[in-house]
């Protein structure tokens, strides 16, 4: 996503699993010389108070993202398919557990 600046350590995005059973969530970014250092720095910067049980780091330039400008065409396929939602269907009120 970002180009590397000359003379600067590459940028990493940090994802933390808050506790077992939860997804890793993006918490921020940091600079590190390599992957291992990125994990160590992520521990010191983002988990000083038991905020996580697992950390993922990934170089920011390895992430491909959709652009907000593409909002219409990219997300259009989900916008016009109301039949994908349970509320689309009328079920008689005397039918239980549905």
């Amino acid at each position: 996503m970002t180009e590397q600046i000359q003379g600067e350590w590459p940028l990493y995005e940090v994802f933390v699993r808050g506790k077992r059973g939860l997804n890793h969530v993006h918490v921020g970014s940091l600079h590190a010389a390599d992957d291992e250092m990125a994990v160590r720095h992520a521990r010191d910067v983002y988990t000083r108070r038991n905020e996580g049980v697992s950390i993922w780091v990934v170089r920011s330039d390895a992430i491909t993202a959709s652009s907000p400008d593409e909002k219409d065409p990219l997300f259009a396929p989900s916008g016009d398919k109301v039949y994908r939602h349970p509320t689309f269907y009328d079920i008689p009120s005397n039918v239980p557990h549905m």
Binding site: I5, E8, G28, S29, L30
Partner: peptide, 14 residues
Amino acid sequence: YLYSACETLGVSRL
């Protein structure tokens, strides 16, 4: 945290 937030606006840490 704040430097990383600032960098998302296209300014480098350096």
